Simulated assay, not measured.
Amino acid sequence: MVTAFLAGLVAGYGVAVPVGAIAVLILGLSARTSFRVGAAGALGVATADGLYAAVAALGGAAVAGLIAPYAGPLRLVAAAVLLALAGHGAWRALRPPAATGPRPVRRGLGTPARAYWAILALTLLNPATVVYFAALVLGRGHPGGADLVAAGLFVLGAFAASASWQLLIAGGGTLVGRALTGPRGRLITALASSAIIAALAVAVLVG
């Protein structure tokens, strides 16, 4: 059971650590409104990550028996997907940045409820997250086999990892916020995420 939760934590940090437009939006919300609004947006991101983890984990449990004869090839495919995601993340971090200015904070997100639902919807528009979790779950096998409790702990771990990171961004203050969202911070967090995902891909191959 503890293994499933820890697997969810690692997977959650792997997808949450890169600092992108949503993180900048959360930081701006905290700076221009209040920590409550920024924290609500952070929990919106974590909810989306948790939902995608649940779809992948429970879907993996549902089809575990069907895919058992193909476990070997699927493990290779899953590792390839994870390595591709890691490589893509590293490439995006190392390529020259586009000349775009900071995105303004929308006035409509000035309350915790609006921030939560709006950022939840924005995060759900990223289907790459469910591809990431599905590749991880199907590649290593469903956490704890077909045990729904283990699946729930995996999802809880992913949610906790995402929430802790996004809340750090929301409450870190101007100094931490600038460090994370500046060019060097984006590079470091993106490369760290790529390293985590690549390590998970290797674990899929040797697991």
Results as ranks from 00 to 15, higher is better:
R32Y: 14
Y132D: 11
V130E: 01
A39E: 02
S34L: 13
V63S: 05
G173R: 12
L191Y: 07
A31M: 14
L25E: 05
L124H: 08
P96A: 10
G72I: 14
V137P: 01
A57I: 11
R103F: 11
T33S: 12
S193D: 06
A48K: 00
V2R: 14
A57M: 13
G177Q: 08
Y116A: 03
V149K: 11
H142G: 14
L191W: 05
F154M: 09
P102K: 13
A160I: 12
A11I: 08
A31L: 15
G28E: 06
V2L: 15
Y70Q: 10
A4D: 01
A90S: 13
A158Q: 02
T47N: 13
S193H: 06
S194M: 06
T129G: 10
V204P: 00
P73L: 13
P102L: 15
A203I: 06
Y70S: 10
L29M: 14
S162R: 04
G41L: 01
G177H: 02
F5P: 07
A150H: 09
A121R: 15
G87A: 05
G44N: 08
G182N: 07
I119T: 13
A98Y: 15
P183N: 11
G44L: 06
F159H: 03
I196E: 00
W91G: 07
V130M: 06
V55M: 14
V130Y: 02
A146P: 09
Q166F: 12
I119A: 05
G65N: 08
G87Y: 00
I188T: 11
G145Q: 02
R184M: 08
A98F: 15
P69M: 10
R103P: 05
P102Y: 14
W165E: 06
A86W: 00
P96V: 02
G28I: 12
A61P: 13
W91I: 02
G50V: 10
L168G: 00
A151C: 13
A163R: 05
G108Q: 03
V77I: 12
A170I: 10
A134Q: 09
A201S: 01
P69R: 10
G207Y: 01
V131E: 01
D147Y: 03
L94S: 06
T181W: 04
I188P: 01
A86D: 00
A56V: 10
A42I: 05
T189C: 04
A203G: 10
G12E: 08
H142N: 15
G141H: 08
V19E: 02
A71I: 11
G44V: 02
A201L: 08
A23P: 03
P97F: 11
